[in-house]
Amino acid sequence: MSGARPSVPAYVRRLWSRRHFITAFATARLTAQYSQAKLGQVWQLMTPLLNATVYYFIFGLLLDTKNGVPDFVPFLVTGVFIWTYTSNSVTAGTRAISGNLGLVRALHFPRAALPIALALQQLQQLLFSMGALVVILFCFGVHPEFSWLLALPALALQSLFNTGLSMVFARLAAKTPDISQLMPFVLRTWMYVSGVMWSLDKLAGSDRLPHAVVTALQYNPAAVYIDLMRFALIDSFTGAQLPPHVWAVALGWAVLVGVGGFLFFWKAEEEYGRG
């Protein structure tokens, strides 16, 4: 039965019946992460805060990237947190199957439960970071507004995108473990071109790069989700800084990668036990 691949509807049904396992697995991973530390779960909040401090020190004070960006600290921190969500989902995805081979070889369940659970763990972690972000926003004089509600659809679309991407890399890395060695370099490049620490909008103004390159950078999914979140949370980040049709593009990336990644993962369902 589990030796053969079920149809997509059957697979989705099976996955749905394992939803409690998925959430329990994600929460367990999250809790286990800091259980050896003396401060325990305080680290859930401390880690993103310390990360933000480091980036502020280097990019804000030492390199002075903030040149011309109002509300630089909220801008930077939002970028770092939203980027970390995508980047960690990909990294977790590459280890979803290869790091849990024992589980795959011991128990029956739809294997997509693993990358989905790991993406969910990253979402939970992001929610802690968002808590820290709200504190930072307050400290820098950004106050809650109705536009903050836009963060929810942006986050939902990004989550769908991340889960899909996580499944793609889960399959790739299950076949070729070397992928996980390569990913840090790919991810770092992706981070630097996505305007995490600087405003992509500034590039559009200058003529240094051809227009097509700038457009490609602006429409790359990481930049889209980061800028949507900045637009939702930060007043001084206006709609004029967003590329046209940005919500449609965000939806497009989410559906394309989310559904495509799921199907791509499902295609190899019966082979994951082999390692």
Binding site: F21, A28, G102, R105, A106, L107
Partner: peptide
Amino acid sequence: GVNAALMNDLTGERNVILGGLATG
């Protein structure tokens, strides 16, 4: 083979729940 689903850093209590869910 439920041992693969259990996590050493969690309490026995939570592992019973996690392991039970993992076995379906």
